[in-house]
Amino acid sequence: METSVTTASEGRVWGGGNRPLDASYGKLMMWFFIVSDALTFSGFLASYGFSRFKFIETWPIADEVFTHVPFFHGNFPMYYVAFMTFILIMSSVTMVLAVDAGHKMIQKKVILYMFLTIIGGAIFVGSQAWEWATFIKGDYGAIETKGGRILQFVKADTGERAALADFAKTLPGERVDHERRNGIWFYQDKALPSFTVNEVTEGLLANPNILIRTETITEAGEKQLLTREESLTRIKDATEVVEGANLIHNEYGSRLFADFFFFITGFHGFHVFSGVVINIIIFFNIILGTYERRGHYEMVEKVGLYWHFVDLVWVFVFTFFYLV
């Protein structure tokens, strides 16, 4: 392994045992996988860029979408994502330390560092699940127009976003969720939002403090705010109340924004999840002493490459989804 066939004889170049890249078969295959997986992620991120440049004037502003931190109320743009990034980088560090301890054949240390890596990965996946839940639930609610544009509401005096519940009127009337068990054809209608379009419209008419905010981004880099008169005309286009997000509607703006959020962070989260599973398998192998008997900890190094790659991808997702 250490001193395999070097340049000793020209004739034996093709005879096997020659390692021009000085890396084992397993590591090379991992690099192959990483390069191809990097291209897959690049495809996702580039198509995100495509959609964003296509709708450059109406794309949602990420700072205004991801503003939550667990257990705290208020407006904290990006703090939580930054924390997640740090957790992932940190677990990358414990992974390198595990690889390093593996080179030195210190089993105890490899166990410790692998354990910390797994914990870091678990925290990250949990955080992402929380992010998804918050994103799907939504917070303010919005109106969708005939053309599929999203109209959000703002309080005129403070400039803060207004939730539908803050101003919508409750009109007498009966709305029943059409569930699958009631239908003749076992067909289920989509879940009813908390308010009808009518209730929101009436609420807007009755409350002079509420203005409409459109998707359009102004020169100043903020969403366009309509005047009271414009708001009253614009609300006539309303067709639907949107609360939260799914693949078809979302209250944040462009529909593609939510689609890409689910696809890109979902695909990445799936990578982290499988990374954690592989880490756990390797972790038990280390405890069992498999690699002590094998005489080297190359498996840790290989799974480490994958783990770092996942971290690397997150660095890009963080930039292109949350920062730029």
Binding site: D22, S92, L312
Partner: peptide, 19 residues
Amino acid sequence: KAYYIAWDFMHLRDEKNSL
């Protein structure tokens, strides 16, 4: 950031130039 993750965490710094 990507450079330092790849070079130092993924040990590309220690690999052969060709790889």
